[in-house]
Amino acid sequence: MSVHDEQLGELAGVDEAREHVRLGSLAPAAPGPVGLELEAHLVDLQHPRRRVPWDRITGLVDRLGPLPGRSRVTLEPGGQVELSGPPGDDVAAAVAGLRADSAVLRSELGAAGLGLAPLGTDPARPAARVSPGPRYAAMEEHFAAVGCPVAGAAMMTSTASVQVNLEAGAPGGQRDRVALAHALGPVLVAVSASSPMLAGQETGWTSTRQQVWGDLDQGRCGPLLGRRDPADEWADYALAAPVMLVRFTDAGGAEPVSGRVPFADWVTGRTLLGGRRPSAGDLDYHLTTLFPPVRLRGFLEIRYLDAGPAWPALAAVTATLLDDPDAADAAAAACLPVVGRWTAAAHHGLA
Score class of each variant (00 low, 15 high):
E167K: 07
S158Q: 07
G169M: 02
A231I: 10
R106D: 11
V130R: 04
H182P: 08
A151N: 05
T121S: 15
R135E: 12
L116E: 11
L119K: 05
A145M: 10
T157E: 13
L225K: 08
G147L: 01
D176G: 14
G113A: 08
M197R: 09
V212D: 12
S207R: 06
A144V: 06
A137W: 01
V95S: 11
Q174G: 02
A170T: 05
Q210A: 15
G113F: 01
P223D: 05
L184R: 11
R135V: 14
L225Q: 12
T206A: 09
V191L: 15
S207I: 04
V164W: 02
W213C: 14
L180I: 07
A103E: 14
V104T: 14
A138D: 04
E140Q: 11
P230N: 08
D229A: 13
P149M: 00
A153V: 01
T203K: 10
A193I: 01
R177T: 01
D122W: 00
G113R: 06
R106H: 10
Y136L: 03
A199G: 13
L114V: 09
S194L: 02
A181F: 11
C221S: 15
R177F: 05
V164K: 07
A190P: 08
A96Y: 12
G214F: 00
M156A: 14
V150G: 15
A170W: 00
P123F: 07
V191S: 05
G152Q: 00
A137Q: 13
A199Q: 06
T159G: 15
E140L: 06
V150E: 15
S192K: 04
V162E: 04
G214R: 03
R177P: 09
W234H: 07
R99T: 15
Y136V: 05
G185R: 14
E202R: 14
R99Q: 15
D176Y: 01
R227H: 11
V189T: 10
F143I: 01
N165D: 02
D122I: 00
G110V: 12
V189Y: 06
S131F: 03
L119R: 08
A128R: 04
G172A: 14
L105A: 08
P223E: 07
Q174A: 02
C221R: 06
A181G: 13
G214D: 12
L198T: 00
D122Q: 07
P126C: 05
P132H: 10
M156P: 09
Q211L: 00
D232G: 08
R175I: 06
G219W: 00
R129C: 12
L119I: 01
E167R: 13
V212Y: 10
L188W: 02
N165I: 02
A199W: 00
P149D: 05
A124L: 09
E167S: 13
V146L: 07
V178R: 05
S131V: 05
W213V: 09
G133S: 14
Q218L: 10
